[in-house]
Design a protein around this nucleic acid. Structure first.
Lengths: 117, 117
DNA sequence: ACCTTTTATCGCCATAAAGTCATCTAAAGC
DNA sequence: GCTTTAGATGACTTTATGGCGATAAAAGGT
């Protein structure tokens, strides 16, 4: 299909919202914790050292974004990752950041202007 | 290399900041315009229908994030994409959103509860 | 029935950021 | 040198959101 240059506003908006979910450190921390399987709210609270209200809020954001799924068992709510794409995205970004830093290091190494011949 | 579960805060922070750049509709629009080569500020202002100050601000954000490069020619400033990864990321997200919507459509089609036998 | 545990939600505050307007800087042309 | 044009920047307003505390709601155990 042809990718036109005038992208509809709703498409732009939805893509932006998807990235917004991944733009908060606390949410990334939670997602990282959920990488090895589902966890309940309390476990996430203990692991993240933030308030329970805060964890619940972030979980709601990700749930509504379709990134997480929710399962209740008794009084507990277990969350797990529904959209594995986020790990791929994070991996790509991490690699890119790493490459940049390595490139930066090279810049300093190659800066031999003041070095003895 | 082993990917540990306790990710350093600075890493989390940097990844979050990268996604933050992509979480604004206006920036995505500008990036989309820059897909087919460099453009000067004035061209972007005309294409986006926003103020020149606003365009300059967003360009600065992306420049400092290492996503754009800047080249001046006379009184004009030409910007172009330095980090092609963003297109890959946007493509992946768009595909995912499209799949979800298709899946949603299927849900409605399969909901024949009220249909005649 | 009551109390505890777990989660969700509300009200509030502080902060961050997008957008606008006005101003400032720098290069080009006269 | 002055004006014009292009772009950057600072002050300001408005909005969105992260975080906290308190509270509500739901399920289990006593």
């Amino acid at each position: 299909m042809a990718v036109v240059n005038t992208v509809p506003p709703e498409v732009i908006q939805q893509v932006a919202e998807y990235f917004t979910v991944l733009s908060e450190p606390m949410r990334l921390r939670i997602l990282n914790l959920l990488r090895d399987g589902e966890k309940c709210v309390q476990e996430l609270v203990e692991a993240t050292q933030t308030s329970q209200a805060n964890v619940s809020k972030h979980l709601k954001v990700m749930l509504q974004a379709g990134i997480l799924t929710r399962r209740t068992e008794g009084t507990s709510a277990y969350y797990s990752v529904a959209d594995e794409l986020i790990f791929e995205l994070c991996g790509l970004v991490c690699d890119r950041i790493a490459s940049r830093i390595e490139e930066q290091a090279k810049q300093f190494r190659n800066f031999s202007l003041m070095a003895r011949p």
